[in-house]
């Protein structure tokens, strides 16, 4: 077994960055930009649908353009929320075990909810 005399910091030093650190930040910014038109559209649409009967709401969702935009909005919001919630957990939960547990629970529930939402819109759109 080769003995490592260098500390982990010593080994990492001088190797430069992993070039992956900015990935979440960039993804967060991209979803922010995409959210501006998508959320504007979704908020106005849902406000207009608020008082409408079931058939009108369902018919609205079957339109191809609506379905695609709605699925994009849902996916974008979930990706954005995933990063936001990850930051919240990292910032406020110091205990490593609880942090990992909370992270897994939150990410799993967000992925599940995202899948249910997308599947629902997809199935409605296909009729």
């Amino acid at each position: 077994m080769a003995r490592q005399l260098k500390s982990p910091l010593g080994r990492a030093r001088g190797m430069g960055s992993a070039h992956e650190g900015s990935h979440h930040w960039w993804q967060h910014k991209m979803t922010t930009v995409a959210n501006i038109p998508l959320v504007t559209w979704a908020v106005i649409s849902i406000a207009l649908l608020a008082g409408q009967p079931y058939e009108v709401v369902r018919a609205w969702m079957t339109s191809p353009l609506t379905a695609v935009l709605l699925m994009l909005t849902i996916f974008n919001l979930f990706v954005h929320a995933k990063i936001d919630m990850q930051l919240v957990i990292e910032d406020y939960i110091a205990n490593k075990a609880i942090r990992l547990g909370a992270m897994l629970f939150l990410q799993a529930s967000l992925v599940l909810a995202c899948a249910i939402s997308l599947f629902s819109v997809f199935k409605i759109a296909l009729g």
Partner: peptide, 16 residues
């Protein structure tokens, strides 16, 4: 909003 996404999911699933 993260909580609200679950309401959005409920809305979509209810329509389905």
């Amino acid at each position: 909003m993260a909580f609200g996404l679950f309401i959005l999911t409920w809305w979509c699933f209810a329509i389905l």
